[in-house]
């Protein structure tokens, strides 16, 4: 919210949590995991009950958004929202909840920042020097930032929850502007275990969970099934033409798997025990 000036709000799903957190098996909605769903399953299957105070507050906020957009248009309407009490109240509530649940813990002691190591960029460049040779030197983009945030994901390559966590880490520790280029620190995603070598001022990446760059490449290759740009016009079916036209404009952006897109957008580098990808220039 501080960067974009646009509210980003979370609302609790209605549940028996408040009154039954110490004796969950006795909660009235035990059959639905303690969640309060709308009783009209035919009309609102899978929806929360609308009677709940949090849901009522959310509907109020949605109505405010609609009013603001109808009055002032999308951009100006959106920019006006943080002045409204409905949004300020929810933002204050979220901050109170954060403090309560942190229970004295510092930010870096909680997920996802507990998986982060911040080092001088010198460590990153020394690690990546293995990919430099007489004909190729890594450019200035990474070097121009003094520090690098390493997000350690000691797991096999996959998406959820890591793309969301990567984006959160960007906003929490690296970003000071509206685009991913507005960063004070580099953001590097590591699939593997980071071992810091302070003597050599570099890092090692150890495979403990089967992390391999081949999984990243396989996912990208598999996405290429959706790439129409290699087809000739006579091979396109009519319903594929608009998609071809879009891909001619944007390339393969919208045909890649979501987690590949998110990692590639947010990370300045992605490191594996057996390979690396990085931004240059």
């Amino acid at each position: 919210m501080d960067i974009y000036g646009i509210p980003a709000l979370l609302y609790y799903y209605p549940s028996d949590m408040a009154n039954y957190c110490n004796n969950p098996t006795e909660c009235p909605n035990y059959n639905t995991k303690g969640l309060k769903n709308d009783p009209d399953i035919a009309k609102y299957s899978g929806c929360p009950t609308s009677d709940d105070a949090h849901m009522q507050h959310m509907f109020t906020a949605i109505n405010e958004i609609l009013n603001a957009v109808e009055t002032a248009g999308v951009y100006d309407g959106r920019q006006s929202l943080l002045r409204k009490m409905t949004f300020r109240e929810q933002r204050n509530f979220m901050q109170e909840q954060y403090v309560t649940k942190a229970n004295g813990k510092a930010e870096f002691e909680m997920s996802p920042l507990s998986a982060v190591t911040v080092l001088s960029t010198e460590y990153l460049m020394n690690y990546l020097s293995q990919y430099e040779d007489r004909n190729y030197q890594i450019g200035e983009l990474l070097r121009q930032r003094d520090e690098t945030v390493f997000y350690q994901v000691n797991a096999k390559f996959r998406g959820d929850p890591y793309p969301g966590a990567l984006a959160a880490i960007d906003y929490l520790t690296c970003r000071d502007g509206k685009t991913y280029e507005d960063r004070q620190k580099n953001l590097v995603l590591v699939f593997g275990k980071i071992v810091v070598d302070n003597e050599q001022r570099t890092i090692k990446i150890v495979d403990e969970k089967g992390s391999t760059i081949d999984d990243f490449f396989k996912t990208v290759i598999d996405s290429e099934n959706h790439n129409l740009l290699t087809k000739r016009y006579k091979d396109l079916r009519n319903f594929e033409i608009p998609r071809y036209f879009m891909q001619a404009r944007y390339g393969s952006t919208y045909s890649k798997a979501k987690h590949i897109r998110v990692f590639s957008y947010f990370a300045d580098g992605v490191l594996f025990p057996d390979g690396a990808l990085w931004r240059d220039g």
Binding site: N31, L35, N37, I41, S45, G46
Partner: peptide, 14 residues
């Protein structure tokens, strides 16, 4: 009487 139901992303499944 519906005992339980589930569909993708509903979170309601048993």
């Amino acid at each position: 009487k519906i005992v339980c139901f589930d569909f993708p992303q509903s979170g309601t499944g048993r």
